[in-house]
Nucleic acid binder design. Sequence first.
DNA 1: GCTATTTGTTCAGCGATTGAATTATTTGCT
DNA 2: AGCAAATAATTCAATCGCTGAACAAATAGC
Lengths: 412, 412
Amino acid sequence: MSLTHAPAGGVRQGSLRELNLALVLGRIAAADRPPSRADLATATGLTRATVSAVVEDLLAGQLVSESEPAPRSGAGRPARGLVLADQGPAGLGLEVNVDYLAVCVVDLAGQVRHRTVHRVDLRPVAPADALARLVEMAGAARDDAAREDLTLVGAALAVPGLIDDAGLVRLAPNLGWRDVPVPELLAQHPPLIEEVPGVPALTVDNEANLAALGELHSQPPGPLSFLHISGEVGIGAGIVLDGALFRGVRGWSGEIGHLPVHPEGRPCRCGGQGCLEQYAGQEAIVSAAGLARAELPADTATARLAQLADAGDADALRALHDAGTALGVAVASVVNLLDLDTVVLGGGYAALAPWLRPPVLAEIDARVLTAAWSPVTVRPSTLGAEAAAVGAAGSVARRIIAQPAGWLARSG
Amino acid sequence: MSLTHAPAGGVRQGSLRELNLALVLGRIAAADRPPSRADLATATGLTRATVSAVVEDLLAGQLVSESEPAPRSGAGRPARGLVLADQGPAGLGLEVNVDYLAVCVVDLAGQVRHRTVHRVDLRPVAPADALARLVEMAGAARDDAAREDLTLVGAALAVPGLIDDAGLVRLAPNLGWRDVPVPELLAQHPPLIEEVPGVPALTVDNEANLAALGELHSQPPGPLSFLHISGEVGIGAGIVLDGALFRGVRGWSGEIGHLPVHPEGRPCRCGGQGCLEQYAGQEAIVSAAGLARAELPADTATARLAQLADAGDADALRALHDAGTALGVAVASVVNLLDLDTVVLGGGYAALAPWLRPPVLAEIDARVLTAAWSPVTVRPSTLGAEAAAVGAAGSVARRIIAQPAGWLARSG
DNA sequence: GCTATTTGTTCAGCGATTGAATTATTTGCT
DNA sequence: AGCAAATAATTCAATCGCTGAACAAATAGC
């Protein structure tokens, strides 16, 4: 979790410029083609004079650069297009998961500029050791980034578990972590980050949340509100509303894995009964398909399942259909409640989407009151396996775009 | 639904004052004691000079007034307290429900200054006729308000059904309405509203949503995020996140009545199976308690049920317990998903809260993963029967507080 | 080569905030 | 009473950043 934006304070004289810097930079980031200053003026309602002044600041701060004059028809002085700089600030994404460590660097434009994945079973590894290895990988990433004129301005760490406001990992069941003070442990290593006002040096967040953010910022831009479901051993969801992650009162939203889909059904390790995880979790699907659970690596099991289903194996198909139906019941609840029109199947579900999608859609159609007027899209995630690490790094980069003033004050 | 705030446009020169007007007025509205200019300066971070200038505008525009000097200890010139004016702009709230029409006027401070309720079974009444009677009541309310120097600046209408962006009532099953173009029908009557920039003359919204807003603005101030459940014939919910109503992509959020609590259970008129409404809707409870469903008026049936339960009637107690359990399963889903810490039982549930609360809490404890760390409060609504009308009127008044510039521009 | 057109910059003007100085009003102390 | 300290609110010149119009730059079409 992060301690984000300050509560709406007074609008001071200088805030005006801060707001317009963010506004213009945001437009440049959101545009599908490099906009000219004139485009930005009409889009924002500011005068061309103001936009020019703002853009000058952004250029001086290395946040944007002028691109080749875009070919345009008609008369008139040719426009100079503005694009996000491919140097300057960048975000560091870190991920600790059950069977791998991942590190990546994402620049302002959302491009993944560096990526390292280390396959290793982390359940027997102590948290401090796992983080030490992650820091080692991050150091290499920093050096790599520096060679491309990228400065790391913040890091975000993804962990599959419940994280509190201070970054304490309360519980990461599948990792075997409990009350791990991540910020303290990381503070014992030399810092890799150049601190910038407005950007926390380190945030720790739930893997499902960051994967959802990754999806939000993926190219091409998708909807601003959706549900992203990470189907791993546990099932987590990231809820994105109006382009912002919804974290809940304590940051523990999205526990879709424990939605009761059969209230009097199988007991769950959470203490409840009939939780979705018991019917659509990876272990549940694998064992329902009759696969030996000896094949521990999660991605291997998923791949094997897809292989079997592809070959028409009846057990695998039935297991997937049943899991999809259970998932559909939960998704129908979410859609009834939040009126979302897009559901993204991520994590292990992405590879299984061809078989999960039909029963999920069937349940939505049957159970969602408003389905007749507003169709719901269900699609696999576009990001690959380490979506959370990419989302983590991207969330840092996005923070610079949302609050460029801090970075500009630094490089002044 | 309403066509609210424009998409974050450019921050112009004058926006600065607009923003600070809203900021200062908002602080005055949120304060528990009348703040002085100096209090506001420290609270907002603005200088005292700026606050004085802003307050002068607000005083000139009749939005605030100076109260008696608050008794304060210590030396120094005594402060002049600022309070929201009890005259000036006010909101008109309208409600069409199954068995009553309601109209009320709420001032800036959130006080209900006028209230009329007309008990009548509206199912046999044509929509146009129902609205005509409502307009008649509203005319009397307007005259009443004018005598107290209140100006109606907008109206909000609550309807128990699905409303689209344009104010069209797509479906109000219990009222028997379908595709009713409310704004068109109301436009045929003489206007009662003095239009103000930034405040739509009429918005139409779901009853459950507006009831939740009423709860949000009730005194004393409660939490900024909560789930408000309106238990009537149908079950609707209003989701309030960070002090704002969450409406969903198409404005159809909160359909908690159709969350599947027994996926293979009783068929529901929505086409699904095992929806909450079939287990915890008013009709379901009443018939489970063995009460003749001949007693049609909903409030009567609820009152009788409470009476029986109070007297220890076994059937009534069992019916309420079962309904509470079903409700608890649905609430557990919501809490797992959104991590809310407060659930308000409103509408018909308010009176039944003593019996519904225990089973709801039991299900939450059993099924919510994070319940151990973050207790969930379940309490009855503080507003009475016509909560939606009060919430509707209050939402209009709140809009003035959020955007005072429009009103000030009007009054010269 | 000239005109129309569009882009981007320059500059005086202005509105709103700022910070310091000033005035206003009360409490506490002698 | 009288005076100093303390707090509240206002006044005013300075400054920051937006505005609008005029101007310079660069291209297409005739």
